[in-house]
């Protein structure tokens, strides 16, 4: 699934994109330890608090109205998708601004044979790499909690990565145009947090008022949580899953096209 998302035209010479990815991997070597710890601690905290803690309350006498599904099994795939989205927000904002304004590495790349598609693809590949690490760690910890009812959960990893990428692509298009990072904290407060809370992570969006439920359907995160949930619980319908997949791909492709446009505008003036 993730490989499909990368064959977005115009890709340019793929080896050049890989050279751009190499830069990000080398820079990542400096911080991988702390990020690896976070990748394992974060699911422990969330699954502990919501799955085991809140879940014990919800599951008592089936108060949560989830039928015979435990709250842990319901919330774990939601948090998997939501965490991928959160990770996409942090990877696609500050580092982008830094590459254009602070350390300026994008300009150094633009002076080399790398083209705008190479620079954008290289950075998105790195974000895919980070998202993959996070999703794999989450599924491993979730399995220890006994959160998944189906082996199909393996496919929830690429599904979560795709969910993250559907956010990352439009986000980098926006972030590269910013002159300071003040907008990013607004973005986290007023976009990321409401998404995380209301787009089907912690409760079915059918619980929301009809108008808000409709809004939730439009968010890529809702399609991500539904896709991951279907796979992890093993009750994914083919048609529904393909629909979610296509919707997420639309965001990836659209975001990529926007990113190319704004990168060209900002770096090739």
């Amino acid at each position: 699934m993730t490989t499909t998302t990368l064959k977005v035209p115009p890709l340019g010479d793929f080896s050049r994109s890989m050279a751009a990815l190499e830069y990000w991997l080398r820079a990542y070597r400096r911080t991988w330890r702390s990020s690896a710890v976070t990748a394992f601690v974060m699911p422990l905290v969330f699954l502990g608090a919501f799955g085991a803690g809140l879940g014990s309350l919800v599951d008592t006498d089936r108060a949560g109205g989830l039928g015979d599904v435990s709250y842990l099994a319901f919330v774990a795939p939601g948090i998997l998708a939501g965490a991928a989205m959160q990770s996409a927000f942090s990877e696609s904002t500050w580092p982008i601004l830094s590459s254009r304004k602070w350390n300026g590495h994008y300009h150094a790349q633009a002076a080399s044979p790398l083209t705008m598609p190479d620079i954008v693809t290289g950075h998105l590949l790195f974000i895919v790499f980070r998202l993959t690490l996070g999703a794999v760690a989450f599924v491993l910890i979730g399995a220890l909690f006994g959160a998944f009812g189906s082996a199909w959960v393996v496919l929830a990893v690429p599904a979560a990565v795709l969910t993250g990428l559907a956010h990352a692509a439009p986000l980098i298009a926006f972030a590269v145009t910013r002159e300071s990072d003040t907008d990013f904290s607004m973005l986290v407060r007023f976009v990321m947090t409401p998404l995380f809370l209301f787009a089907g992570t912690f409760f079915p969006v059918s619980q929301l008022p009809a108008a808000v439920e409709f809004l939730a359907w439009l968010t890529p995160l809702w399609h991500g949580t539904q896709l991951c949930r279907g796979l992890s619980m093993g009750d994914a319908g083919l048609l529904g899953s393909v629909g979610h997949l296509v919707y997420l791909l639309v965001w990836v492709v659209g975001g990529y096209a926007l990113a190319l446009r704004s990168y060209r505008k900002m770096l090739l003036s």
Binding site: N103, G104, H107, A108, P113
Partner: peptide
């Protein structure tokens, strides 16, 4: 890309990592 492959650029700001 072919031209830039034969150029060396020392920009005003160093742009080092």
């Amino acid at each position: 890309p072919a031209i830039r492959g034969r150029l060396g650029v020392v920009p005003q700001k160093d742009l080092l990592d």
